[in-house]
Computed example of a mutant assay.
Amino acid sequence: MADDKRNTGSPDRDRINLSEDYEVQYWTKELGISEAQLRSAVSAVGNTAKAVRAHLGK
């Protein structure tokens, strides 16, 4: 499913969409990790920002 850029509410902000380059760039910078680390974390715990942060200890 494509990311609806008009939908900027909490459910959209709380998820990491690895299909969108701008989101991958944002989250790698925000978390201070590489793209490979981000993809690995999302694969391990799912795409919620909260779960990824907890997994990374951030």
Rank of each mutant, 00 (worst) to 15 (best):
M1V: 12
D3W: 12
D3C: 03
D3T: 11
D4Q: 05
K5H: 09
R6F: 07
N7M: 10
N7D: 13
T8H: 07
G9L: 06
S10C: 03
S10K: 11
S10T: 08
P11G: 04
D12Y: 07
D12M: 09
R13E: 10
D14W: 03
R15F: 02
R15L: 00
I16P: 00
N17C: 09
N17H: 15
N17M: 05
E20H: 13
D21L: 12
D21T: 13
Y22W: 14
Y22P: 03
E23F: 04
Q25E: 12
Q25S: 13
Q25M: 10
Y26N: 06
Y26H: 11
W27S: 02
K29H: 09
E30N: 12
L31W: 03
G32L: 11
I33D: 05
I33F: 09
I33E: 08
I33C: 12
I33W: 07
S34M: 11
A36P: 03
A36Y: 08
Q37Y: 00
Q37W: 00
L38N: 05
S40H: 14
S40Y: 09
A41R: 01
A41F: 06
V42N: 01
S43E: 15
S43C: 04
S43D: 15
S43R: 13
A44H: 13
V45L: 06
V45D: 03
G46K: 01
G46R: 01
N47G: 03
T48G: 03
T48S: 11
A49P: 02
K50W: 02
A51S: 14
A51D: 15
A51G: 02
A51K: 15
R53N: 05
R53L: 10
A54G: 05
A54W: 01
H55E: 08
L56G: 08
L56E: 08
G57F: 10
K58G: 07
K58N: 13
